[in-house]
Design a protein around this nucleic acid. Structure first.
Lengths: 245, 245
DNA sequence: CGAAGCAACTGTTCTAGAACTCCTTGGCGC
DNA sequence: GCGCCAAGGAGTTCTAGAACAGTTGCTTCG
C-alpha cells in the first residue's frame, strides 16, 4: 500500500457524504446494498462497512439490519434562553479552571466562518486557540476567529495575562453585548482530539457562537469542543407559573 | 457459528467494561496490546478491535495510535441556571410538536431511579413512555418514573388528552415547583433507538431530571433521549455586565 | 552534546471470503 | 381470509492474516 495518506474507507465516506450533502441522495433514499457498494468502490465488505461506520456516526446515514442503508433525516434547531456558557462558566463553581493559550495564526476563513463574521469571500481572519483546563486537564478546546484587523491588535496582547474579552473591550473599544450560540453533539476530529488529549471520534458537545457588539457588528466567532466524557450539563429549574407547560 | 445470541465482540466489551467499572482497571491504566488481548479472548484482531470500538464510544477507553489503549478518565458535572427544558419547550417556538403516548407499566425500580424518587430498596414504580414528535417524526423519547401510588392514579388518566403535569397537579394536588436536571451525551441503546426510529449507537443528548413539589418531595424522575441528529441547542446571550467573565 | 536513523512496540487499514441474523414478501394450507 | 413457512434480500459477525502508520527509545555519527 503506497502513500495512502487518506484511508480508502475515508475516501469512500467522503464520496458518499458528498452525494448526500449535495442532494443527490435525499433523506430516506436507500443506498445500494453493501456488497454492491463494496464492488463499486473496489474494496472489501469490511472496508465499505468502515466507511458506513463513519457516515453513521456523522448522522448522515442509518443502517437497518435486514432492510438496508438509508440516508438520514436532517437535524433540528432549538432555542434556549438565559443559558450560561458551558465551559467558561465553571469558574463560577469555584472549580480550578484555567485557560491555556495554545496558539494563533492568520488564515483564510472557510465560508461558514466568513459568513458568521459578516466578511466577504475568502477573507483573512485571525485564529486563536485556547484550552480550558480543570485541575490541569483539558476539558474544552476553544477556537476563536476574528476579522484580521481586529486580530492584528489582539495578536499584540499577551492572552495568558489578559482575557480576550477584556482586550477587545478596553484596547479596541469592542464591547461584546450579545451572542448567538448553537450547541450540538459531534464526534471529535483528529486535531481537536490531540489538543484535548483524547481520541478522535469521541462524541462531544460542539458549540458555535457568534458574538456581537451593541450595534450588531459580529466580532468573534467561537467554536468550542467539549468531549462528552469530560462534561455534562446540569441545571436546576424553578417553575414559577403553575400549569405552564 | 452456533447460537451466538450475543456477539463475541460484545462479550469482550462487556468483560473489559466490567473490569473498568469495578475498579480493577483504574483511569490511566494501559491495557494489554491489541494482539495480545485478541489471543487472550481467542478471537482475531478485527473482532477485538470491534469490542474496543464499543468501549471507546462509551468513553471508557481511549486509543492512541502507536502508544496503546488506555482506560479513560471519568466525566465532570457542571451546573447551569435558568435553562428551559430541551424537547418539551419546542411548542414555545410555534413548532408542530406533539406528544404520543407509547405505553406504561409497573416495574421494579433500578437503584438509580429509586434513589432519585426517595424510595427505599427495590420499590415498584410506574413507568410512562412518551414520544415527542415534530411534524410526526420522533425527536425525543421521554421515559417517566413515578412512585407506584402516584402511578396508579396517573394510570387512570388519558394522557393523550391531559398532559402528565396537569394530571399530577389538578388530580393529585402535586404541583411541581422545581427540578434538577443533568444533560450529557450518550449513545442510544437498542430499545430507545427503535422507539425513535433510528439506529442504536447514535450519539444523543441524554437528560435525567428529578422533579419536586414545593416541599421537596420528589414526584417524577424523567429520562429523555434526544438523538444528536434530530436536535441541537441554540441560545441567544445578552451580556448586561460589561467585563463580566 | 545534539541530531539523525533504526528498531521495537503498538495501533490502523485492508484483503477475501464464509456464515449467521434480521426483515419482508409470497405462496400454501387450513 | 388468516396464519405459517420458506425464500430472497440485506445487514452483521468472524476468521486469518499482511502491511502500513505513529511513537518512543537507543545507538551512532558529526
Amino acid at each position: 500500500m503506497l502513500r495512502p495518506r487518506i484511508p480508502r474507507y475515508s475516501r469512500i465516506a467522503e464520496s458518499l457524504r458528498g452525494r448526500i450533502l449535495d442532494g443527490a441522495l435525499p433523506a430516506g433514499t436507500r443506498l445500494d446494498n453493501q456488497r454492491r457498494l463494496a464492488r463499486e468502490f473496489g474494496v472489501t465488505l469490511m472496508t465499505l462497512r468502515q466507511a458506513l461506520d463513519v457516515l453513521e456516526r456523522e448522522k448522515l446515514i442509518a443502517r437497518r439490519h435486514g432492510l438496508g442503508t438509508f440516508v438520514a433525516s436532517p437535524s433540528l434547531d432549538y432555542d434556549i434562553l438565559h443559558l450560561r456558557r458551558l465551559a467558561g462558566d465553571l469558574s463560577a463553581l469555584g472549580e480550578p479552571v484555567a485557560t491555556r493559550f495554545v496558539g494563533s495564526r492568520f488564515a483564510t476563513a472557510e465560508r461558514r466562518i466568513a459568513e458568521a463574521l459578516g466578511l466577504r469571500g475568502r477573507s483573512r481572519v485571525f485564529v486563536l486557540e485556547r484550552l480550558r483546563l480543570l485541575d490541569h486537564h483539558p476539558i474544552g478546546l476553544q477556537r476563536s476567529f476574528l476579522p484580521s484587523a481586529v486580530g492584528e491588535e489582539v495578536a499584540k496582547a499577551d492572552l495568558n495575562v489578559t482575557p480576550l474579552r477584556q482586550v477587545l473591550e478596553f484596547k479596541l473599544g469592542l464591547a461584546i453585548a450579545r451572542a448567538g450560540e448553537t450547541i450540538s453533539t459531534i464526534r471529535l476530529g483528529r486535531g481537536e482530539a490531540r489538543e484535548l488529549g483524547c481520541r478522535s471520534g469521541l462524541p462531544a458537545f460542539f458549540s458555535e457562537r457568534t458574538s456581537y457588539t451593541a450595534d450588531g457588528t459580529p466580532v468573534v466567532f467561537d467554536r468550542v469542543f467539549i468531549p462528552g466524557d469530560r462534561f455534562r450539563i446540569t441545571r436546576q429549574l424553578t417553575y414559577d407559573t403553575p400549569g405552564a407547560r
